[in-house]
Amino acid sequence: MNAISQLYRRFNTLRGRRVFILPTRFGVLYGGFLLLILLAAINYSNSLGHILCFLLASMGQLAIHYTYRNMAKIELLGAYSEPCFLGQAIPFYCRFDNPSRHDCLHLHVASKQSNERSWNPFKNVTGFQYQPHQTVDVLTGQQTTAHCITVPSTHRGQQTIGQIRLSTRFPFGLFDTWTYFTPACAALVYPNPIGHLPLPSSTNDGQSHHGIQRKGVDDFSGLQPYRDGDPMHAIAWKAMARDDVLRTKQFSSSLSGQFVLSWHATASLTDTESRLSQLCRWVLDSESHGLAYGLVLPNMTIEVDRGNAHQQRCLTALALYD
């Protein structure tokens, strides 16, 4: 048994991706009209009526090939995503490759929304649980292009893109051809940044970091060339307008304003998710105010720091907390 399933799997690999094709309801209607035309032609012994019927039937048969060709060769090379907050839509960037010489037009990209199965087997075929996201107007021949799919975020932490359904009805709309991709791509979903507790002040954090002189927000101390990760609000835009060089304003401050955002400070909230949301809100607020902060969770501690990289580290810790 195992050998057979292995063989079957190997056969599937050799055969390539499965591409499905079925007539749409308009395709069925088209067939009905052809039958009518044939009946009229037979009844009136009309030769050109026969020719018309056969010509349209032949074009319908070609439509199968054209519709299939409009999608069959397309590959999903990969997908990448950007992290987002719970409640927001996750952008997944899918890189589609069209290796054929023809442009492929009007493809619909949908992603699987739930694993629920309907009692109606046709619904699974027609893809009811695939929510359409985007129409790709054109995939130029022999080119790779990235297209963004937005998927609503459902839970905090890692969210995979799931199954992608690529379908097309071009050129006639008489046939619907589709295929599935399952790219290995997961997006990080941060907690929803809501919470009304005030930002904890530096005095009640219980720890002190006296004596360490660090660059801060308090006093302007000079300009330095821009480096990746420098916050946007610190860029010297006016200086850039002069000579087109990105510089970052440097401030000197003592870390007197630094504090730690602690899991315990949210004790008034009972729910884990609300506590994480509150912490998330605080992280964002502190960063936007240019404050230095640390994060303490029951299972991990992040030292006091600031900057984009630090913020991301904190948000990731919040996202993956369990």
Binding site: L55, A57, L62, Y66
Partner: peptide
Amino acid sequence: MLLQAIPLMLILF
């Protein structure tokens, strides 16, 4: 497509 449909059309005819 019409031109490509002609061979099959002839056979059917």
